[in-house]
Every structure is written in structure tokens, then in C-alpha cells.
């Protein structure tokens, strides 16, 4: 019962946030709706018994990625020219009716393909008793340094590379 209410709440947040992210014309609002959607995803993780992942989702997205996005919007907003270098009218940056039509059509095709793939799963959806929720922190910790230790190390190198790369790229160039 409680789980169901939680699930419906989280699903509504996720899908509503995602829909509004796609719908709104204001980039700042889109970012806030994305935050709502990501919180909903954290709620879905919680209903799936993935407590550590839910907290990680909150820490990384709410604390890091969304604020970073907001910062980037603030640093790049302002100048808007509506013609490109050939003097032709550009598509507005948040899309217009034409782009949405194209996106909608291609999404219908994609949806049919994915549904074709998912259909056998929907048909054979038998499940027994689900295990009770347990703490996953210790098990994830053990898995990270035993089974997945190579991926763990590679991801740490990736993060270091991203850190250095982001600093180097966004640094203003000398003599310019």
C-alpha cells in the first residue's frame, strides 16, 4: 500500500518532469523540471530497494549536475542573433512547430521498434515472491572492489580526465 503510493508519486514526478522538460519554452524552467524528474527517479530507486543509488542520485544530480547546468545557462545566456552567417533565419533555439513535428514522428517510429522488442517481456511477466528490502551499501561496496574493480578504476581515471579536461577547455586562451 505504502509502496504503491510512493511508486505512483515517484512515477508522476518522473514523467511529469520529463514531459514538462520537453514541453516548456524556457530553458531555466526546463532545468528545474529536469530536477523534478531526477528526484522522481530517485524515488523510483527507493521503491526498488536501491537505497544507496537513490542517495547517490540526489547527491550527484541535485547537488552537482543541475547547478552546473544552471551555471552554464547563466554564463551563456544573453546574446541572441536570429540569423546565421549566411543571413538565413535560424530555427529558434528552443525549437518550433516544425522541429517538434519531426521529433514526434521519429519518436513514433522509435516507440514502435522499442515496443516490438519489449513485447515478449510484457507477455512473459511472471514473478514469484520478491525478496524483502535489505541494505545494499555493504554489498555494493564489496562488489565495487571485487567483481567490478577494473571498471571502478577506469571510471576514476575517467573522472580525473573529465576534471582536467573541463578545466583546460573552459580556461580562457592566452593572448586573445
Amino acid at each position: 500500500m505504502f509502496l504503491k503510493i510512493m511508486f505512483i508519486l515517484a512515477a508522476t514526478m518522473t514523467l511529469g518532469g520529463a514531459f514538462l522538460t520537453a514541453y516548456t519554452k524556457n530553458l531555466m524552467h526546463a532545468c528545474v523540471y529536469l530536477l523534478v524528474s531526477l528526484f522522481g527517479v530517485a524515488g523510483l530507486y527507493a521503491t526498488l530497494g536501491a537505497d544507496f543509488l537513490a542517495a547517490t542520485q540526489l547527491v550527484v544530480y541535485a547537488g552537482g549536475v543541475v547547478i552546473l547546468m544552471l551555471f552554464a545557462i547563466m554564463l551563456t545566456g544573453g546574446i541572441q542573433n536570429f540569423v546565421n552567417k549566411f543571413g538565413l533565419d535560424k530555427v529558434p533555439s528552443m525549437g518550433n512547430g516544425k522541429t517538434y513535428t519531426i521529433a514526434g514522428l521519429s519518436m513514433i517510429i522509435t516507440a514502435f521498434i522499442i515496443m516490438k522488442v519489449l513485447a515478449p517481456i510484457f507477455k512473459t511477466n511472471v514473478q514469484g515472491e520478491l525478496p524483502a528490502f535489505a541494505s545494499t551499501v555493504e554489498e555494493i561496496g564489496v562488489l565495487l572492489v571485487t567483481d567490478h574493480v577494473l571498471a571502478f578504476e577506469i571510471s576514476s581515471i575517467l573522472l580525473l580526465g573529465a576534471l582536467v579536461g573541463a578545466a583546460v577547455i573552459s580556461r580562457p586562451r592566452r593572448g586573445k
Binding site: 530536477l35 544507496f52 542517495a55 547517490t56 542520485q57 540526489l58 547527491v59 541535485a62 547537488g63 552537482g64 543541475v66 547547478i67 544552471l70
Partner: peptide, 12 residues
Amino acid sequence: FYLIGVSSLVGV
């Protein structure tokens, strides 16, 4: 972990 995550909403 939860506390660190939730309190980062204040920054937003």
C-alpha cells in the same frame, strides 16, 4: 549520504 544529497537543494 541522504543528508548531503537533500541539503544540496538549498543551493539550487
